[in-house]
Design a protein around this nucleic acid. Structure first.
Length: 561
RNA sequence: UGGGACGUCGGCAAGCGGUUAAGCCUCCGGUUUUUGGAGCCGGCAUACGCAGGUUCGAAUCCUGCCGUCCCAGCCA
């Protein structure tokens, strides 16, 4: 994993760790990535994963993968499995078994009883609505629950009965006794346990009370000996509570919580709720739809783990809520793929070319380099014959300007790896305007794609032999959303879904070598972009997903006129 | 005067009292090229939210404004 070995740029978390290490406050660095298994991982999680595992690696410490499975109502084994797959795919190793907050439930329960005995927690009979009303508002203090003064003994008995299932769901809660007047709402007697009868993915129906995040999380970190507990900005307000709980159990190891800004990227959404909605309402084909920012979607799109890690390293870590340009993500992708993707020719929107002076039944096999960026990558054979397919975009009835150097009547272009051809004629359906076929002559002296006469042929087209081309399906993906900030205009992010974010081409023709690629393999279709083999592919009918286009300066020039 | 945090180039982001205010993406030129790809070269903040103050010296320290984000789940 050489990319994460690069010297990491300075950031405030490293500063804190450096200072904790040099002051002797800490002797090692232990971090953790603590997902709740209630959805699939996305690129935002990747930032956190790279941060936590990266820190552990660079300080020779360790990073745990811990499922924060404290709410069985939302959690499922499917997510536990997918999360482990995704973290592993990203290239990280959590050293053995994943850990689970639910494995600590027994300890947490005992510690809760300690707080009760110390008169620091009480069982409350208020309903959820009542608790909300008693909590006050942002600007007005809350008031104490009438049950706040129960004796420690009574609380202990009640809490045990809660655990033993003697009360219905929601009937009682265990609350910490802190301060109803605090300006920080989290300190207004937060709920520690609620009664929920739901089947837990790992604990089954063993428990009917479940700890809340604030009570559980610091304990989980403590048990695991976490030194630096890194989370996102919205937990800043929770840090006083994180510390308060741990301070009530002074013999416990007390990690330091540090908050950083979560990742936002333009033209996409990152909240689990929205991603879930896209999947459930079928705006996309699933969590692994190639337009999703989920790790599984990105994998299917053709992203490489290396490119994602590189991206996470480049965006930095800070406390400013910011939005990264998706162009940076795509840049990291192209940079990685450019080094390694095999070059192939594929005609997406075919136009027939007949080479009038080429022998009727002749076939030549040219050698094409697999990747000019990598001399070691070798070559493959490409068949050439009298009838070929070229891209519709590579022919015009009339050259628009002197900068245009593609095919047009009287103009000469190079067929990559093959010959120069000159357009001598073309057929057109006058009623529809459709170009039916183009007739050319080739120059035998240009075999291989060049001549000795110093003739300049600036245009190079990709092509596929008509009799050898393999019919394929090509799925052209673009950004799922057409607005930089989905929902900014109407308040509903769904309004900004781009109806054209997927274009399916069913008549594409690819060179024979392309029919042999394995699923997820990334290749470059010359002059067009990077594509990968979709798992929907069959022997008879390959399916390719466009990962990302190549940069296209001609398109830019044309746009500007 | 509810609490917490944050404001450095179009977008990220270094900088921690003395720097010509890093780097990356985008963008714009040029060069090169059998991918209008890639590569290579160059350009792009006299300026650090604003206003004062401290100091020989401030993006860095202080004060006051202004702006943005987060918090009222028995979610995490």
């Amino acid at each position: 994993m050489s990319d994460t070995d690069k010297k990491s740029p300075s950031n405030f978390i490293r500063d804190i760790i450096d200072s904790d290490l040099s002051s002797g406050k800490r002797a090692e660095v232990i971090t953790r990535f603590p997902p709740e298994p209630n959805g699939y991982l996305h690129i935002g999680h990747a930032k956190s994963i790279c941060l936590n595992f990266g820190l552990a690696k660079s300080y020779s410490g360790k990073c745990n993968l811990r499922f924060d499975d404290t709410n069985p109502a939302k959690e499922e084994q499917e997510y536990i499995d997918s999360i482990q797959n995704d973290v592993a795919w990203l290239g990280f190793d959590w050293g053995g078994e994943a850990l689970y907050a639910s494995d600590y439930f027994e300890d947490m329960y005992e510690w809760a009883k300690r707080l009760i005995k110390a008169d620091l927690a009480y069982v409350d009979d208020l309903t959820a609505e009542e608790i909300r009303a008693y909590r006050g508002t942002l600007t007005t203090p809350g008031k104490e629950s009438p049950y706040r003064t129960r004796s420690a003994q009574e609380n202990l008995e009640l809490f045990e009965k809660m655990k033993d299932g003697e009360f219905p769901d929601g009937a009682k809660t265990l609350r910490a006794k802190i301060d109803l007047t605090s300006g920080n709402l989290n300190m207004r007697d937060p709920v520690m346990y609620r009664i929920v009868r739901a089947v837990h993915p790992r604990q089954g129906d063993k428990w009917c009370i479940y700890p809340m995040y604030d009570w559980a999380h610091g304990l989980e970190d403590s048990i695991e000996g976490i030194t630096h507990s890194i989370c996102t900005l919205e937990f800043e307000d929770h840090r006083p509570l994180y510390d308060w709980f741990l301070n009530q159990l002074p013999e416990l190891h007390h990690p330091r919580q540090i908050e950083f800004a979560r990742l936002n990227i333009n033209y996409t959404v990152m909240s689990k709720r929205m991603l879930m909605q896209l999947v459930k309402d079928k705006h996309v084909s699933g969590w692994d739809d190639p337009r999703m920012p989920s790790i599984s979607g990105m994998k299917r799109r053709g992203y490489t783990p290396e490119s994602i890690r590189d991206f996470c390293g480049r965006i930095g870590v800070a406390k400013v809520a910011s939005t990264v340009d998706i162009a940076l993500l795509e840049h990291c992708l192209r940079e990685d793929l450019n080094k390694r993707a095999l070059r192939r020719m594929a005609v997406l929107k075919p136009l027939k070319v007949v080479i009038d002076n080429y022998p009727e039944d002749q076939v030549e096999w040219f050698d094409g380099e697999n990747n000019p960026e990598d001399p070691e990558s070798g070559t493959r054979k490409i068949p050439f014959s009298r009838e070929l397919w070229i891209e519709q975009d590579d022919f015009r009835e009339e050259a628009p300007n002197k900068k245009y150097f593609r095919l047009a009547p009287g103009k000469e272009v190079r067929l990559k790896h093959a010959y120069y051809i000159k357009c001598v004629d073309y057929k057109k359906d006058e009623s529809t305007g459709e170009i039916l076929e183009v007739h050319c002559t080739y120059d035998p002296a240009s075999r291989g794609g060049g001549t000795d006469d110093g003739r300049k042929v600036k245009g190079t087209s990709h092509w596929v032999s008509a009799s050898h081309g393999v019919k394929s399906e090509v799925r052209l993906y673009s950004h799922l959303f057409s607005a930089e900030t989905p929902g900014a205009a109407t308040g509903n992010f769904l309004d900004d879904i781009d109806a054209d974010s997927l274009e399916i081409l069913t008549d594409a023709l690819v060179e024979p070598a392309l029919a042999e690629e394995a699923a997820f393999a990334g290749v470059q279709f010359l002059r067009q972009g990077y594509f990968c083999v979709d798992p929907d592919s069959t022997k008879d009918r390959p399916v390719f997903n466009r990962t990302v286009t190549l940069r296209d300066t001609w398109a830019k020039v044309e746009k500007q006129g």
